[in-house]
Design a protein around this nucleic acid. Structure first.
Length: 862
RNA sequence: GCGGGAGUGGCGGAACGGUAGACGCUCCGGACUUAGGAUCCGGUGGGGAUUAUCCCCGUGAGGGUUCAAAUCCCUCCUCCCGCACCA
């Protein structure tokens, strides 16, 4: 008998799919579309299990949607710009482009080996000028609309990578890639005005509720960080100017006893100049800058520099001392705050340190507050006191009342503030998309002409040991002429943050070869992405930027949609247990003896089995997809990954588990091959299945129940694990049934053929190769990948008998098979006489009988 | 500190408020074998007994709602993730 030769089977079908272009799609308005997208990979060299999981989940969905009659767009591409290419250039002397393209080559082969149903004709690499030229155009259009601008800012600087990092690329003060301590540097850079869309980005999160993980929505909401408050004017007579502070607690205005501003606030400088302590201020600024990290971590003590001046309280006219303080951020609000120590913990600590007065203006409903006895600020709402005409008001009401009063007097106004900052997109890197701007001595900043795009990244550049971008040193790149006046000019040498490329790739997949950015018909047919799948690590940045781009491109007239991704699935990590030797640290499983001793250098120490963690080389717990495919085949790998855990949860890699998946496929293969010769010519229609013997009826019923469950679990719930469990369950029943039937009978063959065919159909999204092969063995010459998902017979799946659970006082005491025809009354009579139940009812009064049709009956007795 | 999620056998995990532990793994026993780390069959939450049968206990802890709770409500514990001087 034929052995399950997965390698031969898989290569063959992958070849046939490709030759027949069966996964290439075209827009077809007569068919419902479905766009499945997995986050495209960075071509780092080889795919890892996380990719395998991500793409397996997407592929199962794409395949079942195809079978359910959708016109499915399922593309794949490469997020090809980025730092690792330059690092590789430094380390191995390979040009980033060469490195990137050879990685793409390799990884593409790996993905093909996994049998993913991508339309490879739509492949995109973002480092291709034909891709990024459109991005340059978007940028210019944004610039012309005032959505892109240049400003000087204090930026995070990684001394190792020689680059600016976004706030979000800094993790606890360290570079997210290399781990070096990040410093600060003042630099000019380009920014996109994402804050102009803050309100819409926040508001539209409501449209995603129920379709995106709640967690992601909350994270984005917090990131945008909307707060409502007031801006209030505090006059400073020394400089005859108003200081504007921002507060969310205008109700505590009467409790303000001092005012703090950021040391970098222009007014601090102005005062210091006037009062002659500029040096002292400068020293303070530097100290604060140095401590920025600790300050942000909440570790540094609050510290202030008295500016030797006072502000005038807008309502009481009191003189309040003015400080420059290390905890006031220049970037948020107005960079200045009024301090109410009685009702703000930070102000309280500051006041205690510098002996500043504490004035209570809000009291709890049930008690009084005494400033001298307070050990912490009272931050909750309450009743307003010591607040002139507002005394006695509820503080929540007081907020609006005081704001209105200030507004009336021209002393302040209502103000909404967002935590979200504009997006700094300049990177001092080589391997990225050139920013299409030109600096002309006469005309200033001038965008490149659209017709001159792309501004091509020169590939003949050499990356030297410094690791710095070679672009500024390439005269043929830098020197150009001004598009406006024609005089000599210089190009911008920074490149875009690579989050730019991933902010719109999903749309380009609809028309990857179109000369203009987007083909209207394609974009309108395919967008938005119906199901987006990827890791939670992109919960904020990538997803927020893509949402932002979508809105901008909409406003530039390219799209009609507001949101790019209708549904989002964030899949869990692939984790594996770790082994740690007290001497050698993390060790590979091969370095551990069966007794758990370390085998490295004959060490012999007892190895500690650590908890399961995300696969990483440093922890020696990686599993190589190539090796797994080689050993078990792609179908087994896909099956195990889909079966081992629900998609959103972490998946624990198990060497035994994958054996189990392999065993299942072998069992299926052997079973069908065993019967295939006999069944090839068999055909059936539903009429054939009337008056079946009981065991075959049960088998068919189970089959149709399984079809229903798998359809729902795969397509609607995306819980592939339970669907696969149902298929396994069915196979178990099928094998049991086969032991008691004779293949001599025609009807048995018909039932068997139906079972085999349909089980292959429903398994095919998960294990497409073996499904194709066995489909052929059963006599078909079509691609199972293009077959329709089977319908289930809804009359058949209705059981005619069911197992009635019999409870007494909520405890299960007995159960019996009952026909669905039996009435409640009949059931009660029968059940009461059953000995096990009788025993519990004897001498008791039946107070109530709860009857759940087709499920259970519960006697409540006393 | 704030926000979110999760705690179910030896393990991964199933369970519209209705038989807890589907399915798989592990382990144990058996069959077939020169052999088995292949394959097949059976068993596998804990405890107990009068052991082909039956009983009790069990979903992090404690309370509550309900005829009925892993599931709903309250209090608490543990773990994971995100944010964190945002005024």
């Amino acid at each position: 008998m034929k052995r399950y030769d997965f390698s031969e089977i898989e290569t063959k079908w992958q070849r046939l799919w490709e030759e027949n272009k069966i996964f290439q799609v075209k827009a077809d308005p007569s068919k419902p579309k479905y766009y499945v997208l997995e986050m495209f990979p960075y071509p780092s060299g080889r795919i890892h299990m996380g990719h395998v999981r991500n793409y397996t989940l997407g592929d199962i969905l794409a395949r079942i949607k195809r079978m359910k009659g959708y016109n499915v767009l399922h593309p794949m591409g490469w997020d090809a710009f980025g730092l690792p290419a330059e690092n590789a250039a430094l380390k191995h002397g390979i040009h980033p482009a060469k490195w990137t393209y050879s990685n793409i080559d390799y990884m593409k082969k790996q993905l093909k080996k996994l049998g993913f149903s991508y339309d490879w004709s739509r492949e995109i690499a973002t480092c291709d000028p034909e891709y990024y030229k459109h991005e340059q155009r978007f940028f210019i259009e944004m610039y012309e609309k005032g959505l892109a601008y240049r400003k000087k800012t204090l930026v995070n600087w990684c001394p190792t990578c020689h680059t600016v990092l976004a706030n979000e690329q800094v993790e606890d003060g360290k570079c997210w890639r290399c781990g070096t301590e990040v410093t600060f540097k003042e630099m000019d850079g380009w920014f996109l005005k994402i804050t102009a869309y803050a309100e819409e980005l926040l508001e539209d999160l409501k449209k995603l509720e129920g379709h995106w993980p709640e967690k992601v929505i909350i994270m984005q909401r917090n990131w945008i960080g909307k707060s409502e408050g007031a801006e209030i004017k505090f006059y400073i007579s020394d400089i005859e100017d108003n200081l504007i502070v921002y507060t969310t607690r205008p109700d505590t205005l009467y409790g303000a006893t001092f005012v703090c501003i950021s040391p970098e606030h222009p007014i601090a400088r102005k005062i210091a100049e006037k009062k002659g302590f500029l040096n002292k201020l400068q020293t303070f600024i530097e100290k604060v800058r140095k401590e920025k990290r600790e300050i942000e971590a909440g570790l540094a003590e609050k510290e202030g520099l008295f500016l030797e001046t006072y502000t005038i309280h807008p309502l009481t006219g009191e003189k309040l001392p003015l400080f420059a303080a290390n905890f006031v951020l220049m970037e948020y609000g107005t960079g200045a705050i009024m301090c109410v120590p009685a009702h703000d913990q930070r102000d309280f600590e500051f006041a205690k340190k510098y002996g500043l007065p504490i004035k209570v203006v809000i009291k709890p409903k049930d008690r009084d507050l005494n400033p001298e006895e307070m050990t912490e600020a009272y931050e909750d709402p309450g009743i307003m006191v010591n607040s002139d005409i507002f005394t006695g008001l509820d503080s929540i009401e007081g907020k609006a009342k005081i704001t209105a009063y200030l507004e009336e007097k021209g002393l302040g106004k209502k103000k909404i503030t967002y935590r979200l900052r504009d997006w700094g997109i300049s990177r001092q890197r080589y391997w990225g998309c050139p920013i299409p701007m030109i600096y002309c001595e006469k005309c200033g900043i001038v965008p490149e002409r659209i017709e001159n795009l792309p501004v091509v990244l020169p590939l003949d550049a050499q990356i030297d040991a410094s690791g710095r971008s070679p672009l500024p040193n390439l005269p043929e790149f830098v020197n150009t002429t001004c598009p406006k006046c024609g005089s000599p000019a210089k190009r911008e040498t920074d490149t875009f943050d690579t989050f730019m490329e991933s902010s719109w790739y999903f749309a380009r997949f609809t028309c990857p070869d179109y000369t203009e950015p987007f083909n209207k018909e394609e974009v309108e047919y395919w967008l938005p992405v119906d199901q987006y799948i990827g890791g939670i690590e992109h919960a904020i940045l990538h997803l927020l930027y893509a949402r932002f781009f979508t809105k901008v491109l909409r406003d530039l007239g390219y799209f009609k949609i507001d949101e790019p991704f209708t549904n989002l699935l964030t899949q869990g990590m692939v984790i594996k247990e770790t082994y740690k030797c007290p001497v050698h640290g993390w060790v590979y499983p091969e370095e551990v003896s069966p007794e758990g001793k370390c085998l490295k250098d004959g060490c012999g120490e007892q190895v500690i089995i650590g908890k399961s963690e995300k696969m990483s080389k440093s922890k020696c717990n990686v599993v190589d997809p190539d090796k797994m495919i080689e050993k078990y085949g792609a179908d087994t790998v896909r099956l195990f990954i889909a079966f081992a855990a629900p998609p959103e949860r972490d998946l624990e890699w198990s060497d035994h588990g994958i054996e189990g998946a392999y065993r299942f496929l072998k069992r299926l293969y052997n079973l069908i091959i065993d019967y295939s010769e006999n069944l090839k010519k068999i055909s059936y229609i539903s009429e054939d299945f009337k008056n079946l013997p009981n065991n075959l009826l049960k088998l068919r019923r189970k089959l149709h129940q399984t079809i229903k469950k798998v359809g729902e679990d795969f397509e609607k719930r995306l819980h592939f694990n339970t669907g696969i469990a149902a298929i396994m369950e069915f196979l178990n029943l099928l094998q049991d049934t086969l032991k008691e039937v004779s293949l001599e009978k025609e009807i048995v063959k018909k039932v068997l053929k139906e079972c085999f065919e349909k089980i292959l159909l429903i398994l095919s999204p998960v294990c497409p190769h073996i499904a194709e092969e066995l489909w052929k063995e059963l006599g078909h010459d079509t691609f199972i990948s293009l077959e329709a998902f089977p319908e289930y017979d809804s009359d058949l799946i209705e059981e005619d008998v069911f197992t009635l659970v019999i409870q007494v006082n909520g405890k299960v005491r007995d159960q019996m098979e009952v026909s669905v025809e039996t009435s409640k009354e009949e059931i009660i009579e029968i059940v009461k006489e059953r000995p096990k139940i009788k025993k519990y009812l004897e001498g008791k009064i039946i107070k109530n009988v709860v009857f759940v049709p087709k499920k259970l009956i519960n006697f409540v007795v006393a």
